[in-house]
């Protein structure tokens, strides 16, 4: 007997449903589930002391531009402090915002790189391989947050600073773009450490792992696994105070900001 039209449709619906269920099930319960590193920055705690800016510079061997380059807008800041004016005179208020790379899940910079130098790694970090970058600067243009910087000159370090260069981070040559990597060298270090002790990484290992987060005296910066619902950072991301920069662009940043007052851009 030929199946009726209704039966065929029912079968199709069941099949589609089963496939969809299987697909979602795989994602939710895959062994060794993928991490998604992210950050929460509490603007109500931040005092704009810029300890994060300095710590980031030291940790990641970011060259100091100096008085000749800064006026030409050629300074490099993996972590910067934005000052945004709110309100109208005389009721003006300045909101300071520490801005690392947002590590967008849907990153515009990754899409425009013609040589695959920038990419999103398997744990959600938007990274850059310096040796592969050809310096076309498409990514600096594509980034809506201007979180990418071009090395206009050969980075130089004062003789007194050379001994403090971090051996875990390569210095970049002239002509390549550089950016925040969420201190992936520290993530690698903590992974090795945990593995040596025969355990998995816990939230406590990473909550203040990045240099900016470690340096923050107000504990305003929290780092962690966004894919883990129980991590401190996901808990903060669910807070009613949470917002993301330029959310309407659909870039899905993994850096979440927290502020009691409503944020209008």
């Amino acid at each position: 007997m030929n199946p009726t039209r209704r039966e065929v449709l029912k079968d199709m619906a069941v099949t589609v449903g089963a496939v969809a269920l299987a697909a979602s099930g795989v994602e939710a319960s895959a062994p060794g589930k993928k991490r998604k590193w992210g950050m929460a920055i509490d603007l109500d705690r931040c005092t704009a002391c810029q300890a994060c800016v300095v710590a980031c510079r030291v940790e990641n061997n970011v060259p100091v531009a100096g008085p000749s380059e800064i006026p030409a807008d050629r300074g490099i800041f993996w972590m910067d402090m934005l000052a945004i004016q709110e309100g109208e005179h005389p009721e003006v208020r300045t909101q300071y915002i520490p801005t690392p790379c947002n590590h967008c899940d849907n990153a515009p910079c990754v899409k425009v790189c013609p040589v695959g130098a920038t990419f999103q790694n398997e744990e959600g970090i938007v990274a850059q391989i310096w040796g592969r970058c050809i310096g076309c600067r498409y990514c600096t243009t594509a980034c809506p947050y201007s979180r990418r910087y071009f090395n206009w000159t050969t980075p130089t370090f004062a003789e007194s600073m050379k001994a403090q260069l971090n051996p875990d981070v390569a210095t970049r040559p002239r002509g390549v773009v550089e950016k925040c990597t969420l201190c992936h060298q520290r993530i690698r270090g903590v992974k090795d450490k945990a593995r040596n002790e025969g355990r998995e990484i816990e939230d406590a290992d990473v909550v203040h792992l990045t240099a900016c987060s470690q340096a923050c005296p107000a504990e305003a910066i929290t780092f962690g696994d966004m894919a883990d619902n129980d991590s401190t950072v996901s808990e903060l991301a669910r807070s009613p105070r949470a917002f993301r920069l330029l959310e309407e662009l659909g870039t899905h940043p993994k850096v979440v900001y927290l502020r009691e007052a409503k944020w209008k851009e």
Binding site: N121, E122, A127, D168, H184, Q185
Partner: peptide, 10 residues
């Protein structure tokens, strides 16, 4: 073993 770029590049 993962061949993710960040596995070995710094």
């Amino acid at each position: 073993v993962s061949n993710d770029c960040l596995q070995c590049h710094k």
